[in-house]
Amino acid sequence: MMRMLRQLWQGVEGLSAWLRMVAVLVAFTIVIGGMIWQRMRLLQTGREVIVPMRPVDPRDLFRGHYALLNYDFSRIETSRVRDFDQLRNNGGRSAFSPSGTIFVVLRKDPARPPFWAFSHALLKPPEKLGREEVFLRCKRSWFGARAIFVNCGIERFYAPKERALKLERELRGRWRFDRNRGRMVPEEGARVPGVILRVNARGEAAIAGLYVDGKRILVDGLL
């Protein structure tokens, strides 16, 4: 075993140190470049979906330099997970591990254009979707007996300080805490802001901008 390791190391060491370092750095650059390329591509080619946004704490929205975003589908009742019972009966323990994938289906909301609303969720990838439907591939962060909390990678919005403060002023006062429902709800007559997402066929989503008072506040590019 040690002899094999030594032979392997001698082979590696036979290569120039510069060459090895450049190989490592190129690999690092490919990983980082890949992240950028994947996001840019998603933003350019993904289907646009606008979902209503609900802040975790509207009094202090931009805590630090990012806002924590909350959606209608951030907490899902188990009754709205279509294959929940089926999997509970047949799928075994693994299907119910606290962490794992959940597929959130969104449908265009004719009552509230241009928003898309949460339709239902699935623990297995959806086989068929309607024309006005998309799905998000999310992670279950934890679940109890009645609800599942999900994380879709679109829960943080970073903004420079001035912009963050401006946005916070604009968004403040649009929600109130509903004791009966135990969560933030929009104020009567207030226009609910939204988050513009780009979603690809695999269910990956990226934040493309914010939607406030009928205006699109788009996230600028790399420059």
């Binding site: 490592v24 950028i36 996001r39 990012y66």
Partner: peptide, 20 residues
């Protein structure tokens, strides 16, 4: 170099609002 690799990934995540 090893630490900067993580720093670069974190920066890209912030640039594109990836909550990660």
């Amino acid at each position: 170099t090893a630490l900067a690799f993580g720093g670069a990934m974190a920066l890209v995540a912030q640039i594109f609002h990836i909550s990660g």
